[in-house]
Design a protein around this nucleic acid. Structure first.
Lengths: 200, 200
DNA sequence: GTCTATAACAGGATAGAC
DNA sequence: GTCTATCCTGTTATAGAC
């Protein structure tokens, strides 16, 4: 593992834990087991480091969803699969979504420019195509809008993850209860989505 | 309007705009049109100021939802009403939810203690009671869990608000399109929720 | 209560030896 | 490529005049 890799990993850990503003170059250097000077040798500024971390995390957060819709399973199975895969991914990486969302709000113009330049594009093409085919076959509700399907899916899955402390507090849950709740939601969310998509 | 009120309002504006870590006492003083010294006369630390801002915003974010379930409308109308009211509230105060969520993640223990001490409690008692009554009357699906209804509602409504830059980017929307999308979602979300709640 | 001035410190960034 | 030492700026917070 190269020094640069160690730095990026350390920076990701620190920034996801604290957010960009509270992340400390000192702390990143310690996590990477190097000194601050060397940190600036590899990345000339905190901002430059953020760019790399953001690119990495942003591509990760959509990869899972994209892959599912590449497969050749029946459509409604794909929805269920997507919900399961994406839930599992976020359960394993719970700090990712809030970091991305906070960053995009902190400086929308900058991040949009970055993404356009990098050609990054949320890979929902597969889902879109499949919805249209489903409508033709009469499986999918005709007035369904693809963008809302995506928003519904992400909102339903993501909210309980990013609002973990609030969810635990509101429902008076311990950690085990909370994990169980996240697990239960996979089925619940799948059913809601499929129910909404299906032609009546 | 007292100086203290001006300070709290200025602090809320600043902290919601930038987040706690990036919020500057200097900038809060300027917004309140006083100097930094006086700011510390009223609030001895940034942390003390945050406490007040958090309490204020946290109570606001649940008030709207609580009120709806106090009324004596038919149950499914209340769901629709809640979705509309809450959507409108968040459209008017788009920075509130991300601030609350970020804060609770930044220091969960502190905020939980604060809320317990203040006796703050998300007011979903009304919804809970009504769901149970609905089940008895056969209007509501028997295996429905109240905590998931709340999570579904908030997730569906809140995500497109806190992820505004991402939503605009993903769907290539301008501001007018985005506002329209938020407006359209009220009906979409109501239908999804009611459909999920109704006994088949 | 309100102001000015300044302390005390921590942050990111740089220079230069090795 | 890696380190130590240091600069410079901006931060919160305090002291003290009015």
């Amino acid at each position: 593992m190269t020094t640069e890799d160690k730095i990026i990993e350390a920076a990701e850990t620190e920034m996801l834990e604290c957010g960009y503003d509270a992340a400390r170059m000192r702390s990143i250097a310690e996590k990477a087991e190097i000194n601050k000077g060397l940190l600036h040798y590899y990345f000339k500024s905190k901002e430059a480091l953020l760019t790399r971390v953001f690119q990495k995390t942003f591509s990760e957060i959509f990869k899972t969803l994209g892959e599912v819709f590449e497969s050749d399973k029946p459509f409604f199975e794909k929805i269920e699969l997507a919900v399961n895969q994406y839930s599992n991914f976020l359960i394993r990486h719970p700090r990712l979504p809030l970091f991305i969302i906070s960053e995009m709000n902190r400086d929308p113009a900058k991040h949009r420019a970055r993404m356009k330049k990098a050609g990054v594009n949320p890979p929902f093409g597969g889902l879109l195509k499949e919805l249209e085919e489903g409508k033709k076959k009469g499986l999918v509700r005709k007035d369904l809008k693809a963008e809302h399907v995506v928003l519904n899916m992400i909102g339903l899955i993501m909210f309980p993850i990013i609002a973990k402390p609030m969810v635990m507090f509101m429902n008076d849950l311990n950690l085990a209860d909370y994990k169980q709740l996240l697990h239960d939601r996979k089925k619940i969310v799948s059913e809601i989505l499929i129910n909404d998509i299906k032609a009546k």
